[in-house]
Simulated scan of single mutants.
Amino acid sequence: MKESGTEGVIRIDDMEAQVFKDLLHFVYTDSLPKLKKDGEEEDVMSQHLLVAADRYNLERLKLICEEKLSRYIDVGTVATILTLAEQHHCHGLKKACFSFLSSSAILKAVMATDGFDYLCKSCPSIMKELITMLNT
Rank of each mutant, 00 (worst) to 15 (best):
K2A: 15
E3I: 13
G5V: 07
T6L: 15
T6H: 15
E7H: 15
E7C: 14
E7N: 15
G8A: 09
R11T: 12
R11M: 11
R11G: 02
R11P: 01
D13G: 09
D14K: 05
D14H: 10
E16C: 02
A17H: 10
Q18P: 01
F20C: 04
F20K: 08
L23N: 06
L23T: 04
L24Y: 07
L24I: 15
L24R: 05
H25F: 15
F26S: 05
V27I: 15
Y28I: 04
Y28S: 01
Y28F: 11
D30Y: 06
D30S: 08
S31C: 15
S31N: 13
S31W: 12
L32F: 14
P33F: 11
P33Y: 12
K34D: 10
K34L: 12
L35P: 06
K37T: 11
D38G: 02
G39T: 00
E40D: 03
E42D: 02
E42W: 00
D43T: 07
D43Q: 11
D43F: 14
D43I: 07
D43A: 14
V44S: 09
V44G: 07
S46A: 14
Q47I: 10
L50A: 05
V51R: 08
V51K: 01
A52Q: 01
A53C: 01
A53N: 03
A53I: 01
D54I: 00
R55K: 11
R55T: 06
Y56A: 00
N57P: 09
E59R: 08
L63I: 10
C65Y: 06
C65F: 08
E66F: 08
E66A: 14
L69S: 04
S70L: 09
S70G: 09
Y72N: 11
Y72V: 00
I73Y: 04
D74C: 15
V75W: 10
V78N: 05
A79T: 07
A79W: 00
I81A: 03
L82N: 04
L82T: 07
T83F: 09
A85Q: 05
E86H: 12
Q87K: 15
C90H: 00
H91Q: 12
H91R: 13
L93C: 03
K94S: 04
K94M: 05
K95R: 14
K95V: 05
A96M: 07
S99G: 02
L101P: 02
S103V: 06
A105I: 13
I106M: 04
L107R: 09
V110G: 04
V110E: 09
M111A: 15
A112S: 15
A112R: 12
T113G: 13
D114L: 00
G115R: 01
G115Q: 07
G115D: 08
F116T: 07
F116D: 03
D117C: 03
D117A: 01
L119D: 10
C120R: 03
K121N: 03
S125Q: 07
S125H: 00
I126H: 03
M127P: 03
K128I: 11
E129C: 08
E129A: 02
E129L: 06
M133Q: 14
M133I: 05
L134C: 13
T136F: 08
